[in-house]
Design a protein around this nucleic acid. Structure first.
Lengths: 345, 345
DNA sequence: CGAATATATGTATTCGTATGCTTTACAGTA
DNA sequence: TACTGTAAAGCATACGAATACATATATTCG
């Protein structure tokens, strides 16, 4: 094993051509299946295919990319690799990409501004044929600069991006939040609802906050400032921190709506660790329906999103553009949300 | 916004050179900081840097890769993107790669043979400077073929790979399993221990199974065939399936050791759904210590691995080779395991 | 003051592939 | 027989950057 390979480099088309006794372009034509109006004799074709087999030739994508100006790669930037919400998205995108014979570069921004910018830099230096991302801090201008510079198709999650050439996949989370709050009040009978959100500068923040406000108003409830927090950052740990603050107060809302499941789970775990019961002492509702929502006890009542659907829409929208089936201006693709009543609220 | 860019393509070195009134190679030399013994006048250097700024020039990595035969990319193949065990690994590898100015291609095998092979094919076609992977089905021969063909450094998780040029990161999971079982018997006082494993053809299977056997033997316990199953496949769902089978039987071991946390959690959830109490009716222990282990109630007693450490060792071992600091034959890097007693056993 | 030596830059070529254009060989036609 | 058409394959070049080699100018020294 591992005897130092005599000709250490992988074979090239030239090697194949030499072995088959033809020229390199002829090999190229055979392998690319006569795209332009050429014709190759069956005999030559066979010789070449045999040579390919014998040498175990594989085309070099780097060279091909340089020549064709296409990389056969797409880039994906997600906001948090640890958040299970993104896993099905990443997986589906990979599956679709593979069907189209594309590879995927994955980057992880951790919700950080500098990481998002670095990602754009990276895909400028290493041209890809398409970009899917979850921009939290990037603005329309940032994205526009990238597009005018590279002419690369871009698809995003998040309605806040409004660029004429960028397809958007989103869920109407404002409406979903409204429905969740309304349901807590009307169906579950809670007389007050607390809100555990994220700072307004994160895009989904304002939408969900307004959904909450609207529902409260419509139910004739006043929003208690004490029952509202914007100190979440999408992580479980931020949920625990918020719970610790809550424990220091003396009056609680009967139920708290958290803008994502991880934060909701953090709340529950910390409250339970302090000896309180969910939902008896306080109920908790989340948003996303990640797998952990069905692991925690009590199982988490939540507003489900459809990450597989989201991922598929993202990928298909992107390949529609990469492969030229779609050339018009931006499309907005909405994915449904669905209330999942469980035991936590 | 998005006015169709007049010169739609990103600028090249040639453009920069023209604007600065010099030749393309001069630009190359300035940007690569005089690697070969060259000297550039300060004046020229400044002109070029200005031109670079004005045109917002970014080097094209594809062209550079073709010329230098280096891609500035590494490829990572993990076994299951949904398994939280791999998240810190992927994240650390990305962080280290970024420090070295490398991008990362991530692939997900889902433990499937064909996906693993497809991955190798992909990194043959698209040369990368290094490969990190978790091979489940790939053999030494497969890996050897890849290495002799591409001369690419490879680092793996999993002691089963024994290739003279492949660094291995692993945990002594045989020993760890032995210790876990022994601890259950000696410290926790269980009189019998069930085993929920995976088929022997998955590499960690035999190691952990032998650890279990050894511990049982040493404790003077006989292994009850009824208490042993190899029907797991690393997923939570396979844990639920196993629990359903268990529920059909009428006698249970007092505790079951599962070879990973996801499977252990599947067991617990299904047993609880059927009305049984963990650990009172039956105790469960896992392996890995993924975040979900601290979410489920009761919290999961488990044998922790150190994925951050594993990821860092993998990445650093790889860059040691990519950057030529290490040229010798294979190194074996061991990561510790640590028993984490919680409530489930 | 002419030759040797730095110094600064340009020229030509290369990486592996794709593709427009040209050439060759031969069959068919008038 | 001379000419045209077509199938088959070769030739030349381009993609963008890196680099070995050549060249031109300025500097230094005997």
């Amino acid at each position: 094993m591992s005897k130092p390979n005599p000709n250490s480099k992988p074979p090239t088309m030239r090697d194949v051509a030499r072995l088959a006794g033809v020229s390199q372009p002829t090999v190229s034509r055979v392998l690319n299946d006569a795209s332009t109006t050429v014709s190759i004799s069956e005999e030559t074709r066979q010789k070449i295919l045999e040579a390919v087999k014998e040498l175990r030739y594989r085309p070099n994508m780097t060279a091909r990319s340089l020549r064709t100006q296409q990389s056969q790669m797409i880039a994906l930037m997600i906001a948090d690799i640890s958040n299970a919400f993104y896993h099905p998205i990443a997986r589906v995108i990979q599956d679709v990409a593979r069907q189209h014979d594309y590879d995927v570069i994955i980057a992880n921004s951790d919700h950080r501004d500098d990481n998002e910018r670095h990602f754009l830099d990276a895909v400028i230096r290493r041209p890809v044929d398409g970009v899917i991302m979850v921009p939290i801090h990037l603005t329309d201008e940032d994205i526009d600069r990238f597009i005018t510079l590279t002419q690369t198709p871009v698809v995003v999650i998040g309605k806040q991006i409004e660029h004429p050439q960028v397809d958007v996949v989103w869920a109407d989370d404002g409406k979903a939040t409204y429905e969740a709050i309304t349901w807590l009040i009307k169906e579950r009978g809670y007389s007050q609802v607390g809100y555990f959100g994220i700072p307004d500068l994160y895009p989904p923040g304002p939408r969900r906050w307004r959904g909450y406000q609207r529902a409260m108003e419509q139910a004739g409830l006043t929003i208690e400032p004490d029952y509202v927090s914007f100190e979440g950052d999408f992580t479980l740990e931020s949920g625990r921190r918020a719970a610790r603050k809550l424990l220091a107060h003396d009056h609680w809302p009967p139920v708290i709506f958290a803008v994502n499941d991880l934060m909701a789970i953090g709340l529950i775990l910390e409250l339970q660790d302090a000896g309180y019961s969910v939902p008896d002492d306080i109920a908790i509702m989340g948003f996303d329906d990640i797998p952990e929502a069905s692991i925690i006890r009590p199982h988490l009542t939540t507003m489900a999103q459809t990450p597989v659907d989201i991922g598929r829409k993202l990928a298909e929208a992107l390949f529609d553009r990469i492969e030229g089936r779609e050339t018009g201006s931006k499309r907005i693709l909405e994915c449904p949300c669905r209330l999942v009543p469980r035991q936590s609220a």
